[in-house]
Amino acid sequence: MSWISTRAYYERINKFVQKQAPPLASPPLLIESLDYAPIAAAKNADDWDAIAGTLVESARRLESAGAEGLVIAANAMHKVHDRITEAVSIPVLHIADSVGAAMAQTDCQNAALLGTRFVMTESFYRKRLVDHGVNLLPPNPDDVEMVDGIIYKELMLGRVTRDAERALKTIITMKEKEGAQAIVLACTELEMVVDTDANVLPVFDSTDIHCRAAANWILE
């Protein structure tokens, strides 16, 4: 939900559409960039009802403004995906389904999931990938704390450090040793500190995959 991910989504979707559409074409987009502070406070209080309420209101405003489909530009917020889907009459493209479909196309069957604490440890995201035939390594508590801290204390504030880059590279290297065939980068900001093209394992970047799915949906 950070402005970092909002910017990434806007730029990526436009670029993907422009590659496939006639010159000077750009996708018609409605963007609601929410104040993340109250959402973060509700998350820390484990008040997902409040979060769902905020996102449902946003989704309804976008639908009323003419949106024909929705994407939630945050992996963790898909915890309330079903409640948003029930509240609107337009499709909501699920990020984990997009990632799972991309992994199924490459026959990747064993992966490690990196994201916020909620994404790494709870079933709402993991189950979606498993439903696409992907086996996931169990979360390591130390990795969960490390990655969650980097996301919320650095990346969502726009801070990128060498320490964070080294920490993620070490974690990915260890995941390979534990048997992972690939990494799922399940946080829209993690690509800021992970080189998706230069790692010991293939990296499935949820931001890139979700934006590509949104662009393809727009062009259908």
Score class of each variant (00 low, 15 high):
A76T: 10
G69W: 06
A112E: 02
E32K: 15
L24S: 14
T188K: 10
V160M: 10
V92P: 08
A167K: 08
I150K: 09
D82W: 00
N14K: 11
I171C: 10
I13E: 06
S33P: 00
E165S: 14
N199M: 12
A112F: 01
C108L: 01
I218E: 08
S5P: 01
S5H: 01
C211M: 02
V160K: 14
A87T: 11
K169C: 07
T188Y: 02
D131T: 11
G69A: 15
I51E: 04
L136Q: 03
A74Y: 05
K19A: 12
I150T: 04
D208M: 02
F118C: 07
E178W: 00
V200A: 12
Q20V: 11
N216P: 02
R117C: 04
Y152C: 07
M174S: 12
A52E: 03
T116V: 05
K15Q: 15
R7G: 14
E154N: 08
I84A: 04
I172E: 03
D197A: 14
Y36N: 13
H210E: 01
D49W: 00
Q105M: 13
I183A: 01
E86A: 13
D46F: 05
V99Y: 00
V92M: 09
N135Y: 09
S2N: 05
A37M: 07
L190R: 04
M192G: 06
N135H: 15
P38Y: 11
M192S: 11
A180D: 05
V200N: 01
L24D: 12
P23F: 08
G115T: 09
V130G: 07
T161A: 02
H132G: 07
K79I: 11
R12H: 14
L34Q: 03
A74Q: 08
V194R: 06
A21H: 05
I31K: 01
A67W: 01
W217R: 15
F124Y: 15
L201E: 11
Y10D: 04
K175I: 03
T188P: 01
E165T: 14
H78L: 11
A52P: 08
